[in-house]
């Protein structure tokens, strides 16, 4: 087992959100993505001595994550959705760049608060409390199809809002950094 330096550990910690998002993009199932994230973290700890400090840490970590996803796919055929190897190789890691992630997160925080109250209730149950559609449907006494549609609308609303806020948030963050 390689010794993990504090710097390395900090780098690893700082990319966790990006890494999780990247893995989730290749394997769109939260539970499995969390498992893969943990496996990737373990490999990254083991390979700490192989990392070139002058290299791009995130790119290196994503490469390992991509490999772990492929490995997971060969073992795990149960999932309803899994992408072909070609797609897994195509998904651009740059979309999950740490800086971009930070900006999107800020914008998302603002947009989430702007959701109408009825949508926020469903959003909290799904995103924050991690309930399945079936449980949400039972809790709010609405059909599962309606919950699915509401979640689709929530995601679109958030996506549109985030797009609209990105520039503003980016400028604000740039201003703070200068």
């Amino acid at each position: 087992m390689s010794t993990v330096s504090i710097e390395y550990s900090q780098k690893l910690t700082s990319i966790q959100k990006s890494l999780y998002a990247f893995i989730l993009s290749l394997f769109p199932n939260r539970t499995e993505a969390e498992d893969i994230l943990q496996e990737t973290n373990l490999i990254l700890c083991k390979k700490a001595s192989e990392y070139d400090p002058d290299g791009h840490f995130q790119a290196w970590a994503f490469k390992i994550a991509r490999f772990q996803v492929m490995k997971h796919l060969t073992k795990q055929k149960r999932s309803k959705i899994h992408f072909s190897t070609e797609i897994i190789e195509e998904v651009a890691a740059e979309e999950f760049d740490s800086q971009r992630v930070a900006v999107v997160q800020k914008a998302l925080g603002i947009c989430y608060e702007l959701l109408p109250e009825n949508m926020k209730v469903i959003a909290n149950l799904r995103f924050k409390q991690d309930f399945s559609l079936k449980i949400i449907s039972d809790k709010v006494n609405r059909p599962m199809g309606a919950i699915s549609s509401t979640l689709y609308r929530i995601r679109q609303k958030l996506s549109d809002c985030v797009k609209g806020k990105l520039h503003e948030v980016e400028s604000e963050m740039d201003f703070r950094n200068t």
């Binding site: 959100k17 070609e86 797609i87 998904v91 651009a92 998302l108 995103f127 991690d130």
Partner: peptide, 27 residues
Amino acid sequence: LKGNLNYQRRYCNFILQESLIHWESPS
């Protein structure tokens, strides 16, 4: 998604959004 950059980008945006909401601590 196969070979369609536009859809890939769109997909990544949704995923990023989803994972970031998920990362927020429950409130």
